[in-house]
């Protein structure tokens, strides 16, 4: 039974015109409409994530991965037109139509996003513990010792030294900040976690440890995840199924192993062959 299901997801930046969708995409070789100049970040994307499953989304820069991730994670975005629907198992109706308060509640307790950019996800002036505690406090936790205990265990789980939890987040290393973001995303035991480029800016050894940590927690908690990355290594390590995106369209999808071993689309073949 799928936890999150999206159909016909489309996002267009710009005024748009009737031929936008026809004139862009994989066959047209661009995501910008030659008629009106609008950028079709993604179009006609269908996907679903099952309980406890990890779905990978891979593609080059500008292929629409982040736009897609933000829509799935209910990120508010004033720009651009959104179309299609996102269904979530614990909510009636289209997630793209929810009001501020519902969105706030869903984001707080049901669908978390680990941002690509640290500054979008963390308040660097707050302590690391405070950043994680914010999620709990927003969800109505009012007992200080309970909050401390939960934050401490999340720090231990995400392998951040609990001794550092009362230091300002800007004093943390990049890897620690990423871990704090993951701890924050997991604080309220969400059903779905969306990771947008979870390894950006980390060196290879730290990348490996962060990914190992996430994979372990994901299995233990049986949380569904959507991992967006341009890095096939990340996708190979984490994802059960994978979508390949290009020019705002899904060009290939299937089991990650199948895509890695037997890529059908020409672009996917290039992508896999170009891994160094």
């Amino acid at each position: 039974m799928s936890v999150l299901e999206a159909s016909n997801l489309t996002k267009v930046y710009g005024d748009g015109c009737p031929v936008c969708l026809e004139q862009t995409g994989d066959r047209a070789g661009t995501n910008q409409c030659p008629e009106c100049g609008s950028v079709v970040a993604c179009a006609d994307v269908d996907l679903s994530v099952e309980e406890g499953e990890v779905l990978g989304i891979v593609g080059e820069s500008g292929s629409g991965k982040s736009s897609l991730a933000e829509m799935l994670a209910l990120e508010p975005d004033a720009d651009g037109r959104v179309d299609g629907s996102v269904r979530y198992t614990n909510h009636e109706g289209n997630l793209l139509d929810v009001d501020y308060e519902t969105r706030h509640d869903l984001r707080n307790e049901h669908i978390s996003l680990v941002h690509q950019h640290i500054r979008d996800g963390l308040e660097l002036e707050f302590t690391g513990g405070g950043n994680v505690a914010e999620k709990l406090l927003s969800a109505g936790w009012r007992n200080y010792e309970d909050v401390r205990e939960r934050v401490r265990s999340l720090f231990a789980e995400t392998e951040v030294p609990p001794a550092r939890m009362d230091d300002p987040t800007h004093t943390y290393s990049g890897g620690m900040q990423r871990r704090v973001q993951i701890a924050r995303a997991l604080a309220n035991d969400p059903e779905v976690v969306v990771l947008d480029e979870p390894t950006t800016g980390l060196d290879v050894s730290v990348q490996a440890r962060v990914l190992d940590m996430f994979r372990r927690i994901q299995r233990e908690e049986d949380v569904a995840a959507i991992v967006v990355s341009h890095d096939l290594g990340v996708i190979r390590l984490l994802a059960d199924r994978t979508l390949v995106m290009r020019h705002g369209r899904v060009i290939e999808s299937g089991l990650t192993d199948r895509i890695m071993e037997d890529p059908h689309h020409e672009y996917t073949q290039t992508l896999i062959n170009s891994v160094i």
Partner: peptide, 13 residues
């Protein structure tokens, strides 16, 4: 939530 974090950090400090 933000104000609660402020109080939390106050108690931490």
């Amino acid at each position: 939530g933000k104000m609660w974090v402020h109080l939390y950090e106050n108690v931490v400090e």
